[in-house]
Simulated scan of single mutants.
Amino acid sequence: MNNQIVQFKNVSFRYDTDAPYALNNVSFEVFEGEWLAIVGHNGSGKSTIAKLMNGLLFPEKGDIYIHHLKLSEELVWDIRDLIGMVFQNPDNQFVGTTVQDDVAFGLENHGIPRKEMIERVHEALRQVKMSNFLDQEPHHLSGGQKQRVAIASVLALRPRIIILDEATSMLDPRGRSEVLDVVRELKKKEKLTIISITHDLEEAARADRIIVMNRGEVYREGLPEDIFKMDEELIRLGLDIPFTTKLVKGLRDNGYDIPKDILNEDKLVDYIWKLKQNI
């Protein structure tokens, strides 16, 4: 992951000239093929970052580069072709009467020929394991299924980067797990760059790297295992420690040598199962 696909260079932004800065001198990089989680409490600046990446906003100071293109009014549409966004409420993204119509909508707007459009729709739905729901009405799907269709709609446009803007916050645990498993698989198989904008550290635990935002500034940056060592500090910043992290900490305190890369529930269950088999 040596190729920089996103760069923020000393970026500052405020929503009003009399308002405090929503982002203040923010610099960071995202590398091609990685999963980066940007976390923070409400008002920390993380959602503003998402809007700036997609050219919905422009910085007051500093520069933003997406795949070596500098964000500007002249290049904003080229940049948007590189980025797909999945939002918090999938119902707000649906426009088609069926799942396949909805996935095809963006392709129609891009003037993709019908034959290629059909191929892309089927491929995108296969990638998110929703091929059996082609003719279903989106509003009859579960929350997790709706978000998988929303991801398929983005995938069909073949972006280089997918931004998940609080995309799992309205889902129940099962739906959240469905969506994050699909994202992990897509990152691995399609070599996509994933950026999670979230306050959920359970989601962030699945990322390759985490940036913690606080009051419009980059507070800390590092690997998940390093960030979660800040447990009390994260709580002071308004972030809750993942249950798995608390459990692992408790097990270690009681003499169990749990590997440091075990940060989510699936890995912990696998480890305990293997441990039990060896007893």
Rank of each mutant, 00 (worst) to 15 (best):
N42R: 03
F228I: 13
M170Q: 14
M1K: 12
D81K: 15
D91E: 15
E232Q: 14
A150G: 03
L192H: 09
W77A: 03
D102Q: 05
G111N: 13
D78T: 05
S153M: 08
A167Q: 09
R80L: 01
D270L: 12
V179R: 00
L223W: 07
Y271P: 07
I211W: 01
A152E: 04
L134W: 10
I262H: 08
N109K: 06
F13L: 12
V212W: 09
Q93I: 06
Q88M: 06
Q93R: 01
L164I: 00
A152C: 07
E108K: 14
D200N: 12
K229T: 11
A124V: 10
D231Q: 15
L171D: 05
L275W: 04
K51V: 00
L23P: 10
E233L: 08
V149Q: 00
A22T: 14
K9M: 05
A152G: 06
I227V: 15
G222N: 02
R14D: 04
G255I: 13
W35G: 00
L155P: 07
Q145T: 00
P59R: 07
V182D: 11
E217P: 01
K187E: 04
F58Y: 14
Q145V: 06
P20E: 14
E233D: 15
I262Y: 06
H140C: 00
G106E: 06
E29Q: 14
I262P: 02
E60A: 07
V76H: 02
R80P: 09
I163Q: 02
E137S: 08
V95H: 04
E166G: 09
S44P: 04
L237C: 08
L56H: 08
V103C: 09
S72A: 12
K9V: 05
D78V: 01
R80I: 07
T17L: 07
R215T: 09
T48R: 11
I194S: 06
Q145A: 07
A204C: 04
K61P: 01
I5T: 12
S153Q: 04
L82W: 00
E232K: 15
T245S: 08
E123Y: 11
R114T: 15
V183K: 12
I194F: 02
I5K: 01
M230E: 14
I118S: 04
I279D: 04
S169E: 03
G45N: 04
D181S: 14
G96D: 07
R148G: 03
S142C: 07
L125D: 10
P259T: 09
I241N: 03
L52R: 05
R220S: 14
E217C: 13
A167G: 07
V99P: 00
D226R: 11
T48H: 11
D208E: 02
G250S: 14
V6M: 10
G45K: 11
N109L: 07
E60H: 12
R215M: 12
E185N: 12
L263R: 05
L52M: 03
I241T: 09
I258D: 02
K249E: 13
T48M: 06
L23K: 09
K191M: 10
K146P: 06
L36E: 08
K188H: 11
E74V: 13
I5M: 01
L155M: 10
G96M: 05
P242V: 09
L157F: 03
E202K: 08
